[in-house]
Design a protein around this nucleic acid. Structure first.
Length: 131
DNA sequence: TTGTTGACCTCTT
DNA sequence: CAAGAGGCCAACA
């Protein structure tokens, strides 16, 4: 019996390539992207909400990391509609321009001030509501 | 190969 | 009420 606690790179790669369950390329990232794409215009959500929708609210960090390549995947993922639990534009620094996120949100009808979404609760969109 | 970091969230002291 | 630590998964050095 080999202690499975030790996850070697090979094991990870194997899990990603073989997929014992049968799933092919549905990794955490893909799920995040799909959920983020379902965000309606003029609405915003939080990383934790997406993570919770996937079943692992503890992996909220991964959601943010997934957004790191959001602009690389196609179709593009509206990462600007995703903010933290406080409604703060924590990821604005990672966009092409720091104001891009705010501009996009304002363009969709969302008011942002002080890197914070006004009426965040009002514009909040729950992924579980659609899924 | 291992170790550290990362656009977070929640609990505990 | 505020601050600190823990935990998740994946990519980078």
């Amino acid at each position: 019996m080999k202690t499975p606690k030790k996850r070697t790179v090979k094991a990870q790669e194997k899990a990603m390539t073989l997929r014992p369950s049968g799933t092919r390329e549905e990794s955490f990232f893909e799920l995040v992207y799909q959920v983020a794409r379902q965000i309606p215009k003029g609405r915003v959500t939080s990383y934790g909400a997406i993570a919770a929708c996937l079943g692992t609210k503890l992996s909220a960090r991964m959601v943010g990391w997934a957004m790191n390549g959001a602009h690389k995947v196609r179709p593009k993922v509206p990462a600007h509609r995703v903010v933290n639990r406080n409604g703060m534009l924590s990821g604005r620094h990672h966009f092409a321009t720091e104001t891009l996120m705010q501009e996009l949100l304002e363009k969709e009808g969302i008011k942002v001030q002080d890197d914070q979404v006004l009426d965040f609760k009002q514009h909040f969109w729950d992924p579980m509501e659609q899924l």
